[in-house]
C-alpha cells in the first residue's frame, strides 16, 4: 500500500490504516511529507509503516502493535501515548517524544528536544543523540536510554523509570539520583541497546532513578504547604 501526501490527505491515510483487517501485516509506504501533523496516529494493526520525509506533530501517536519508521525528523509528541509496537525516527525529534506512553519501543537516531518521555508510563525510549531539559519528568515506569548527553533537570519528580545516560547530565531534577548499576540493569540495558541497534557498551552508562522522597505526603513536610 502506498500513499502520496501531495495527492492524498492525512485523514485518508489514517482512515486506510484504521481500516486494515485485524492482524494485518501490510507494508505501507507514505511519501511526500511536508511536515503534516498526525501522520499514522491511532494504529491498531501489526503493520509495517515507512514514512519518507519530515513529519509534524504527534506522528505515530497512540500506536498499538504497528512498526513505524520515519525517514526524517518529527515534530512534537512523536509516539505520544503509544501502547505497544515500535516507532523508529531516523532523524531528530522535537519535544515531548514518547509523552505519557504506556508501552512499546521508541528509537530516535538523532537528538530529542525537551521533555522527552514526560510522564512516561511503561514505554522504553532509546535516544542515540542527546535529550533536552526536563526529560522523563514525572516518569512512572519504563526505561529512558540516552547515548549522548541529557539537559537540565533530568528525571524531575521521578517515580519508577530507569534512566541510563552515557554522556553528561547537565543537572538532575528534584528527587532524581545516581544509582548503582547492578547485573539486572546491565541485562535490561543490553537488551534495549540491542533492540535499538546500538553498539554502545552498557558498562559505559550511568543509571539514574528516583530517591523516592517525593512519593507521598510526609507529615514532616507539613509546614511547607
Amino acid at each position: 500500500m502506498e500513499f502520496d501526501l501531495k495527492k492524498q490527505t492525512v485523514r485518508e491515510l489514517n482512515q486506510a490504516l484504521h481500516d486494515l483487517p485485524e492482524n494485518s501485516q501490510e507494508t505501507v509506504v507514505v511519501n511526500n511529507l511536508s511536515g503534516e501533523h498526525n501522520v499514522a496516529v491511532g494504529m491498531d494493526r501489526p503493520a509495517q509503516v515507512t514514512i519518507n520525509g519530515h513529519a509534524g506533530y504527534f506522528c505515530a501517536g497512540m500506536n498499538q502493535k504497528a512498526d513505524i519508521t520515519i525517514n526524517g525528523n518529527v515534530g512534537q509528541g512523536v509516539a505520544e501515548n503509544m501502547m505497544s509496537g515500535r516507532v523508529h525516527v531516523k532523524g531528530n525529534a522535537s519535544q515531548s517524544a514518547g509523552a505519557t506512553a504506556h508501552g512499546g519501543l521508541l528509537v530516535i537516531d538523532g537528538d530529542a528536544a525537551a521533555r522527552c518521555g514526560i510522564s512516561m508510563k511503561g514505554i522504553d525510549i532509546v535516544v542515540k543523540g542527546n535529550v533536552g531539559h526536563m526529560s522523563s519528568f514525572m516518569g512512572q515506569s519504563g526505561c529512558l536510554v540516552v547515548c549522548g548527553d541529557a539537559g537540565e533537570a533530568l528525571g524531575d519528580s521521578l517515580y519508577e523509570v530507569h534512566i541510563y545516560v552515557k554522556g553528561e547530565v547537565a543537572s538532575l531534577g528534584a528527587d532524581c539520583i545516581k544509582k548503582e548499576m547492578r547485573p539486572e540493569h546491565i541485562e535490561e540495558l543490553s537488551g534495549l541497546l540491542e533492540a535499538a541497534g546500538c553498539e554502545d557498551k552498557p558498562e559505559d552508562f550511568t543509571r539514574y532513578g528516583s530517591a523516592r522522597q517525593l512519593y507521598t505526603f510526609k507529615v514532616d513536610n507539613a509546614s511547607a504547604y
Binding site: S34, G35, E36, N73, G75
Partner: peptide
C-alpha cells in the same frame, strides 16, 4: 514555528 512552513 513549524516545519511545514519551511517545506516549500
Amino acid at each position: 514555528s513549524e516545519y511545514n512552513a519551511l517545506s516549500t
